[in-house]
């Protein structure tokens, strides 16, 4: 899925607002038909990047090409890129139908063709019976689908979605995620989705760029991002993990506060190691497999399993435990993991 010709090439793009560096030397390639996610905490520059691609902000430096053509000199109204706004930005004085048709009217398409394409896209998003409603007469989820329909009806080369699902409640959100994915396969458009919800990015995207303070910290497929985060930031941001700072010496990790730990991976040059909670087991204190001994501090239910927080000296370890063998708070346990599950981290 990730293979293919690069459709959009972003090279060394920076944009500052006063002292704030909203984008700092961002370089990305986005491939044809890819579902690409931009993930990062609030204020990290995700919206700014989309606005630069759509043409509402000019970068201070850098280059962007679409299909090999320099995008920056092209005015926003002539870019083959559609943006679905974080706040939807539906035209309040137009019906659903006219909102959706707007982009096609701008292209001066024949009336019949516009009608056919609007009908088709309204059917796709399931809003045929709402065609004559005004935006304020719709629910949040319906508005979101109008915004989506308005963007995809143009059949752009590239569709930018700025937190398309953030305004929805959990249940509709799940449904819409499935919908988005289906739509992307159906219409064959390249999607760039901004989100600060990691689950959303991980479940939807072919590749994810994790951003922080205007910098792309890591760009990988979701599974690789989860299994091989390169930095403390990414290990922490994507899923949860136990982070042990320290140094690599004598073939073992000299962890601050916990002492030497055997590691399966090459940790030369690492500044910390991470352990995913599912790689950490709790054992009886006398079990030979126990690497360290600790005390259970807290147990969080997660549905099909629970997450236990175990204090080993001054360091908190996270471990997944099955619902049927819950440890009690305050009990002493052994903490065990395989040396091969240790993930070395090379950056802050």
């Amino acid at each position: 899925m990730t293979a293919g010709t690069p459709l959009l090439n972003i090279h060394g793009v920076s944009r500052s607002f006063g002292d704030i560096r909203a984008l700092d030397d961002v370089s990305l390639e986005i491939h044809e038909n890819e579902f690409f996610a931009l993930l990062g905490p609030s204020g990290c520059g995700k919206t700014t990047l989309l606005r630069v691609i759509a043409g509402f902000e000019q970068p201070d430096e850098g280059m962007i090409t679409l299909d090999g053509v320099d995008l920056l000199p092209i005015p926003p109204e002539r870019r083959a890129v559609n943006l679905m706004f974080q706040s939807y930005a539906l035209f309040p004085h137009m019906t659903v139908e006219r909102n959706v048709a707007y982009g096609l009217v701008c292209e001066r398409l024949p009336r019949d063709e516009i009608r056919v394409r609007v009908d088709e896209v309204l059917r796709t998003v399931g809003l045929t019976d709402k065609r004559s409603s005004l935006p304020r007469e719709l629910s949040g989820g319906q508005r979101q689908r109008v915004a989506l329909a308005r963007a995809i009806v143009k059949r752009p080369r590239l569709l930018l979605l700025d937190e398309p699902l953030s305004a929805l409640d959990r249940k509709i959100r799940g449904e819409m995620q499935v919908e988005l994915k289906r739509l992307q396969h159906e219409v064959g458009i390249t999607f760039v989705v901004v989100t600060h919800d990691q689950d959303e990015a991980m479940s939807l995207a072919d590749r994810v760029a994790v951003m922080d303070e205007g910098i792309v910290r890591q760009l990988d497929a979701p599974l690789d991002l989860y299994r091989r985060p390169r930095s403390i930031f990414v290990a922490d941001f994507i899923g949860s993990s136990t982070i042990l700072k320290g140094t690599y010496a004598d073939g073992a990790w000299q962890a601050v506060g916990v002492g030497a730990i055997a590691v399966g991976a090459d940790c030369a040059g690492a500044i910390a190691i991470a352990l995913r909670p599912e790689a950490v087991r709790l054992t009886a204190t006398e079990d030979a497999a126990a690497v360290r001994l600790g005390t259970v501090q807290e147990v969080y239910f997660q549905g099909d399993h629970a997450l236990a927080l175990v204090k080993v000296d001054e360091v908190a370890f996270l471990a997944n435990v099955r619902d049927d063998v819950l440890p009690s708070r305050g009990s002493d346990v052994g903490v065990a993991w395989d040396a091969t599950s240790v993930i070395p981290l090379f950056e802050e």
């Binding site: 759509a54 926003p76 890129v81 559609n82 706004f85 930005a89 035209f91 707007y102 701008c106």
Partner: peptide, 8 residues
Amino acid sequence: EAACNLGA
């Protein structure tokens, strides 16, 4: 901006 993005 939305109108602009849609080609107006």
